[in-house]
Design a protein around this nucleic acid. Structure first.
Lengths: 143, 143
DNA sequence: AATAGTAATTGTGTAATGCAAATATAACTA
DNA sequence: TAGTTATATTTGCATTACACAATTACTATT
């Protein structure tokens, strides 16, 4: 076992711990009024305009059944509206509603506030580096 | 909204995404033969020798009911053994078995291999920095 | 003793996910 | 064009992981 393996092991352990803590209710599961899964989906919709179940599932590498249920939940809560796809009778598009947009902004702010507190002692350089490394890792996962 | 908020927002988003991806089966949920929760618990037991349900729950900030069920699952699989606490009739200790130790080592190796692949292009400095930042974040969460 | 506190378990409910089967519609092919 | 295959979505079912509340069996205190 090489010296560098220790870093990798530590990364694995810390990430696993982080995921556990985030899954555990208090930290990340729900912030603002939105569940994590709903937050992500609304976020994606706000960036992309409208998307169908397939596109949402692909964007997050989720099973379509999962994406379908989450989109239905968002619709039931009034965060999104379902529009028929004029070119494909099987498909539909989801679009953020005014209310969904509001909740998304609220939740973004709540989450920002949390990280402001949590990372208040971090230097700008460390924050930037953390973004960079997290992004790189996420992009790697996605391939 | 200040300039630095962008970093915090990005950190939040990337972390949320990471957690989602990890929760999603393929990446982190199960590696080697161990579920994430079992991996963490065995890991903790291997570092601390023996622990009771209360201590395990505290270590991970879990509800005791959750820790209790997970410990019971580990026992059922033969990864740990339950020993009565001689000083407290209510309590017991869990101790890694030979088999549990093996599975833990297997899983550690499997996870190490994964990160070796995943982060093969990362510099030593980046890896070290990532460990540092992740650890700092986790310690912050814990308080 | 009587009471209050604690370790653990069990019952119940929820969120998030996947796989498999079913449905409706589209696209392609012979 | 009729028949077949592929695709978008939904629904049924199962699993993992968690919390909260109630219960049990002890322990500690008064």
């Amino acid at each position: 076992m090489s010296m560098e393996d220790n870093d990798l092991k530590a990364i694995d352990y810390e990430l696993t711990l982080l995921v556990r803590r985030a899954t555990s209710a208090a930290i990340d599961k729900r912030l603002g009024n939105l569940e994590r899964s709903h937050y992500l989906m609304l976020y994606e919709l706000s960036r992309n305009g409208t998307m169908g179940v397939k596109a949402l599932a692909d964007a997050f590498h989720l099973d379509m059944s999962t994406a379908s249920r989450q989109a239905a939940a968002l619709e039931a809560k009034g965060y999104v509206e379902r529009l028929p796809d004029p070119e494909d009778g099987r498909a539909s598009f989801f679009q953020l509603t005014e209310y969904g947009e509001q909740e998304l902004q609220n939740t973004k702010q709540t989450r920002l506030d949390r990280f402001n507190k949590l990372l208040k002692d971090w230097s700008t350089e460390d924050r930037q580096k953390f973004v960079e490394l997290l992004s790189r890792l996420n992009r790697t996962f996605i391939d």
